[in-house]
Amino acid sequence: MQSKSIYKVPNGKLLKISLDYDEKNNSINKINIMGDFFAYPEESIESMENELKNTILEKESLIKKINSIIKWYNIEFIGLHAEGLTEGILMCKK
């Protein structure tokens, strides 16, 4: 199932998610994280997209996974954060 969302992160930037997900397993097949936010280093967004594959589309699992990726790759977001990214991803299912 493919879906898109546009989410204005509170006090942040405009996040655009393009999501391909498995309805049966409620998990991510493929995700593109786009928008006018900042992330350092920039290339880490591709790692984030790869690492999110197969993550369950549920708030707690997503936040936990995203925070662990941020820590592992030492990512610094400006205008975006784990909660905002989670919200943008879950909006694709609404």
């Binding site: 655009k16 593109n32 994280i33 786009m34 928008g35 006018d36 936010f37 992330a39 920039e42 967004i45």
Partner: peptide
């Protein structure tokens, strides 16, 4: 466009 943006969008 910014690094994270979609060109066609």
């Amino acid at each position: 466009i910014g690094y994270f943006q979609s060109l066609e969008e």
